[in-house]
Design a binder for these strands. Structure first.
Lengths: 122, 122
DNA sequence: CGGTATCCTTTACGATACTG
DNA sequence: CAGTATCGTAAAGGATACCG
């Protein structure tokens, strides 16, 4: 019995690829990191994550909800109120993604310096 | 003196955004994870990371090298031989990215089930 | 308020061909 | 072998308008 069923991100057709792309997507990373602190309403999240369009935010949230990372809670009130939060599974990825994001923030100077070096050499 | 200089991924114009996009890019993630194990030659890496084209691999490696994460060692031999490895800074991100990738692999069944639930509900 | 639908532009990406 | 150059396509993304 061959071992062909263990998920492997290096295989083109492995489902883990798409999941990974959802969580590491441009807006996916930022949305997950934001929701780690607290729950957000749609437009609140839109203001928090700089530069995201309504379309992309909706699309990103839907992908993350479908994958079981984000919980969508639409209150039946007028005007509409929808709260987004993390599921337990979502909290796990979000923690990792958030750690990555903050690491990058902290290393900005190092990267800038590396770029100067690189660019100077050519 | 206002605190406007601390890198913040939520700001549109913060350099951390671009760095984060390099390391979380489709191929950036997989390249970093691969190099965590050992160094690779170009075509070796291309075979390891399923589905990557020469163009995208070269482009990804250049971005990561410029940011100071990857070391490019071109031996002056014929035929050409180029080894790619991680810098100390690169090992730090790669560890985080690799941890994320493997977490995702391990949660594939959970995500699949969440998707079934989601799709069934509509 | 929290979206969707539509249109349009830009970027990403892949395939192929070529070079030191 | 390890790329670069060129081209064409597909996908991502933004702007705007509209709706429950």
């Amino acid at each position: 019995m061959p071992e062909t069923f263990a998920p492997d991100v290096n295989r083109v057709d492995c489902p883990s690829r798409i999941i990974l792309e959802h969580v590491t997507s441009r807006w996916g990373v930022l949305v997950l990191a934001a929701l780690l602190d607290r729950s957000y309403r749609f437009s609140e999240l839109r203001r928090h994550v700089g530069g995201v369009s309504e379309k992309m935010l909706a699309q990103t949230l839907q992908a993350l909800e479908r994958d079981g990372f984000v919980l969508r809670d639409a209150k039946p009130v007028i005007p509409p109120r929808v709260d987004y939060s993390l599921t337990p599974l979502g909290q796990e990825v979000a923690a990792k993604v958030n750690s990555l994001a903050h690491w990058v923030e902290s290393k900005v100077p190092d990267v800038m310096q590396a770029r100067d070096q690189y660019d100077k050499a050519r």
